[in-house]
Design a binder for these strands. Structure first.
Length: 201
DNA sequence: CGCGTTTGACCGGCGC
DNA sequence: GCGCCGGTCAAACGCG
């Protein structure tokens, strides 16, 4: 990972690159998000429409040959979508209403912080997420989702049951399904759900 | 006892 | 071909 202020060259081609510094004064923020790979499910011959939308894009985050190879692999595995974002958080396992099972933990090179691997436990859903603490900004947590859920989260299905309320509007309401109800946690959860919706549409 | 986590082993890809 | 590295597996472990 290179989040350095002048890190316009991305030395680790397969790493995630967030173009801006986080604001150290913010209580929390999901400062950047990147859709690293999205929706490329064609066969291996199409390689152009690769490096996809990045809302906060100013530089970097380009598709590299490594990304292409990775994408091929992911396509074979049915994992076409990858989204990463960084948020300021004391805890690493932020509740996003999905149920995850931890299946691995690895220390990664050039980072003092371990990386945690999670799988969605819902049957047939092979979405994965990686969580690691930012090497340079230790109060920030980097979450990478890979794949698209083949089911709704308990929260969004709850929202969809409300006839007069659009899901996005529902998300701004406190979740009735979660016992942890601090506004801080709720705020993060809302952002995660919004990004999950962006990803799945 | 069941379920989720931990952790070392293992595997495949990639660069040299 | 070899070693490094990231990702995954699975047995052991711990907790409710």
């Amino acid at each position: 990972m290179d989040f350095s202020p002048n890190g316009h060259s991305n030395p680790k081609p397969n790493s995630i690159f967030f173009p801006e510094n986080p604001d150290p004064m913010a209580d929390f923020e999901i400062s950047d998000y990147l859709i690293l790979d999205a929706g490329v499910f064609e066969d291996d011959t199409s390689e152009k429409g690769m490096g996809v939308a990045n809302e906060s894009e100013t530089s970097g985050a380009s598709a590299t040959p490594e990304h292409s190879n990775m994408q091929k692999k992911k396509n074979k595995l049915g994992l076409g979508h990858r989204i990463a974002f960084r948020m300021k958080s004391e805890i690493e396992a932020v509740d996003d209403e999905y149920k995850w099972r931890k299946y691995g933990k690895k220390s990664v090179k050039n980072s003092p912080n371990p990386r945690n691997y999670y799988k969605c436990v819902s049957g047939g859903c092979n979405v994965k997420k990686r969580i690691e603490r930012d090497r340079d900004y230790k109060s920030y947590v980097i979450t990478t989702y890979e794949g698209v859920h083949n089911h709704e989260s308990p929260y969004t299905s709850y929202c969809n049951q409300m006839p007069l309320m659009a899901p996005n509007a529902c998300i701004s309401q406190p979740s009735p399904l979660s016992s942890s109800s601090s506004s801080w946690n709720q705020n993060i959860k809302n952002k995660l759900l919004i990004y999950t919706l962006i990803l799945s549409h």
